[in-house]
């Protein structure tokens, strides 16, 4: 749970520091980005915490590239 708590701590600190620019400006897009990043990051952390194997999207890029240009055999 430590990473989760750390993430919350960092997020709270930054929202506190950025309070003026995030909430007084009231740009909905900024709040949307905050929410999107929070939800996606929390889901990654929770899945990781409960042992769910999360494939990196870059695995697919790796498979695609190595299928076209295979690495040299040693």
């Amino acid at each position: 749970m430590i990473p989760l708590l750390m993430y919350f701590f960092a997020m709270v600190v930054f929202i506190f520091v950025d309070y003026d620019i995030v909430f007084k400006v009231k740009q909905k897009k900024v709040i949307f980005i905050y929410c999107f990043v929070t939800v996606s990051t929390l889901s990654v952390l929770l899945m990781n915490h409960y042992g769910v194997d999360i494939p990196s999207p870059f695995c697919y890029i790796k498979d695609f590239v190595t299928s076209i240009i295979p690495p040299p055999q040693k």
Partner: peptide, 13 residues
């Protein structure tokens, strides 16, 4: 600057 913090933390995680 308003979105630097969430994007930076996203990169870290």
């Amino acid at each position: 600057k308003t979105i630097t913090a969430p994007v930076g933390i996203f990169a870290a995680i």
